[in-house]
Simulated assay, not measured.
Amino acid sequence: MDRLGELIQYGYDHAMGFKNHMNEAGVRPADISTVEDLAKIPVLKKDRLPELQSDDKPFANLTTVDSKEMARIFMSPGPIYDPQTHENDFWRFAEALRTAGFTARDIVQNTFSYHLSPAGFMFDSALREIGATVIPAGTGNRELQIQVMKDLGVTGYVGTPSFFSILLDAIEEKGWSGIGTFPLKKYFSPRKCCLLR
C-alpha cells in the first residue's frame, strides 16, 4: 500500500467521523490509490460542522489527534472548533505570502484576530515561516495601530480590506499625508494582495 493509501486507511480506522463520511459516500479506503481518487471523497461543507461537532464534541471525530495533543484549538462562529496540531506553518499560508512579495526583511502588522478564531495565528505562523517580523496587532485600536505603523516602520499589512480602509482614514485624520509617509509597501488579505507603490 502506498503512502496515500496508508493515510486514508489510518483515518478510516481511527476517526469514526471520517469513516462515517466515507461510508455515506459509498467510498472505501481501497478505492483511494491516487491523488485523483481523492475526488471520490465528497467535500465536507463547513456549514455541516456545527451540527456534526455538537453531536460529537469537539471535532466530530474527524481527526485522529486527541485534543490534549493540539497546539491550539480555535472557535469560529457556528460554533465550529478548529484544531491546530503543531506550531509551524500548519495552515500553509507561507507560499501565498511569499508569492505576494513578503520576505524576511519585512515588518508586518497582522490585524487579524488572535482570540478564539484562527486567522491571526494562520498569518502569524506563515509570516514567521518566511522569517518576517510580526506585530500581533489584532483588530481595533486604530489610533495605536497607526502609531505602531509609523514608529516601527511597518512594511507590510495583513488583515481585512475594511480595517485597512479605517486605518487609512485615521492616518488622514492625523494629517500624516496618507500612506506615502509610511514605509508600508505590501498589503495582503485572503481575497486580495498588492504592492502599494
Rank of each mutant, 00 (worst) to 15 (best):
Asp2Arg: 05
Gly78Leu: 03
Ile107Ser: 04
Leu196Thr: 02
Lys186Trp: 10
Leu144Trp: 14
Ala119Asn: 10
Arg105His: 15
Leu52Gly: 00
Asp124Ser: 07
Glu36Lys: 06
Gln53Phe: 09
Thr160Tyr: 10
Ile146His: 10
Leu7Val: 14
Arg98Gly: 06
Glu143Ile: 05
Leu167Ile: 03
Gln84Cys: 10
Glu129Gln: 13
Leu184Ile: 13
Ala96Cys: 05
Glu172Tyr: 06
Ala170Gly: 02
Leu97Glu: 09
Lys45Phe: 10
Leu44Arg: 04
Gly138Leu: 11
Pro83Cys: 09
Leu4Arg: 02
Pro136Ser: 06
Ser113Thr: 10
Ile80Tyr: 05
Lys192Thr: 07
Lys40Leu: 11
Ala39Cys: 04
Asp13Trp: 09
Thr64Glu: 01
Gly178Thr: 09
Thr103Gln: 07
Ser162Asn: 13
Arg191Leu: 14
Val65Tyr: 07
Asn20Leu: 04
Thr133Trp: 15
Glu172Met: 02
Met16Ser: 05
His14Gln: 11
Pro118Cys: 04
Ala96Thr: 05
Pro190Arg: 07
Gly11His: 09
Tyr81Phe: 12
Pro136Asp: 09
Thr63Pro: 00
Pro79Glu: 01
Pro58Val: 02
Arg142Trp: 08
Gly120His: 12
Pro58Ala: 05
Asp55Gly: 09
Asp89Asn: 11
Ala71Ile: 00
Gln109Asn: 01
Thr139Ile: 09
Val43Pro: 03
Glu143Arg: 09
Leu127Tyr: 14
Asp66Leu: 10
Glu172Asn: 08
Leu4Lys: 06
Ala94Thr: 06
Glu173Ala: 09
Leu97Asn: 11
Ala15Glu: 09
Phe182Ala: 09
Asp56Asn: 10
Phe93Cys: 12
Asn23Ile: 03
Leu168Phe: 00
Gly131Phe: 14
Gly178Cys: 08
Asp55Glu: 15
Ala137Cys: 11
Asp151Arg: 07
Ala119Arg: 05
Glu6Phe: 02
Asp56Cys: 04
Thr63Gly: 00
Gly131Glu: 12
Leu152Ala: 10
Lys45Val: 04
Ser76Cys: 12
Pro50Arg: 06
Ala94Cys: 12
His21Ala: 06
Asp169Thr: 12
Arg72Val: 00
Ile146Trp: 10
Pro183Ile: 05
Ser33Cys: 10
Leu168Pro: 00
Asp89Glu: 13
Ile107Trp: 13
Ile146Lys: 07
Arg48Pro: 00
His86Ala: 04
Leu44Lys: 02
Asp37Ala: 13
Trp176Tyr: 15
Phe182Leu: 15
Asn110Thr: 05
Leu97Tyr: 15
Ala96Glu: 11
Asp2Ala: 07
Ile41Glu: 04
Lys45Cys: 01
Ala96Asp: 14
Arg128Asn: 00
Ser67Cys: 03
Leu97Thr: 05
Thr64His: 04
